[in-house]
């Protein structure tokens, strides 16, 4: 079992190493590399950051500094079904905080946490640019618009 996991992990690191090797230019490529790394691993744990630093020959502190600066990068794993709720101005005015509190209550987790079974996680977003449909929830790339408190249960059930 351990061997199997290790192999799988090794494949992921190989994929990242190939991406870095194929870059036309390494100068200024850190953010692109981190985007790729997050799409491969799902998040950016310390080991991945160290690997990126080694490959790009830059200090780990610089990699960490960039990861920590940008909201898109996360050092915590997400659930299999990451639920993102928009807290932009239009969504705020249309009651996104109510929807969020319902979401937290149903899943019994806080923002940035994952359910114990690893299925769901909640994140907040700053505007996905669908303000005409506010408030919105995003699951993967699917956008649920005009969400009301009472709709939350149904949306979660769709994915259970």
């Amino acid at each position: 079992m351990t061997g199997c996991t290790k192999n799988k992990n090794q494949l992921l690191y190989d994929e990242l190493a190939h991406f870095i090797a194929d870059l036309p230019e390494r100068k200024g490529a850190l953010i692109s590399v981190l985007h790729k790394a997050q799409s491969i691993f799902g998040y950016l744990p310390r080991e991945v950051q160290e690997f990126v630093a080694g490959q790009l020959k830059i200090p780990v502190s610089k990699v960490y500094g960039v990861v920590e600066f940008y909201a898109f990068f996360t050092m915590k794993p997400k659930g299999q079904i990451p639920i993102s709720i928009c807290l932009g101005t239009a969504c705020f005015i249309k009651g996104a905080k109510d929807v969020l509190s319902e979401l937290k209550q149903i899943l019994s987790i806080d923002v940035g946490e994952v359910t114990p079974d690893g299925r769901f996680s909640i994140d907040t977003l700053r505007c996905v640019g669908t303000c005409a449909m506010a408030p919105v929830i995003m699951i993967d790339e699917k956008v649920y618009g005009n969400v009301e408190r009472k709709d939350v249960k149904k949306i979660i059930r769709e994915h259970q």
Partner: peptide
């Protein structure tokens, strides 16, 4: 980099 929360002109 349309960061203003509540605006989506550039996206459109």
């Amino acid at each position: 980099d349309e960061g203003d929360p509540g605006a989506f002109m550039d996206r459109s």
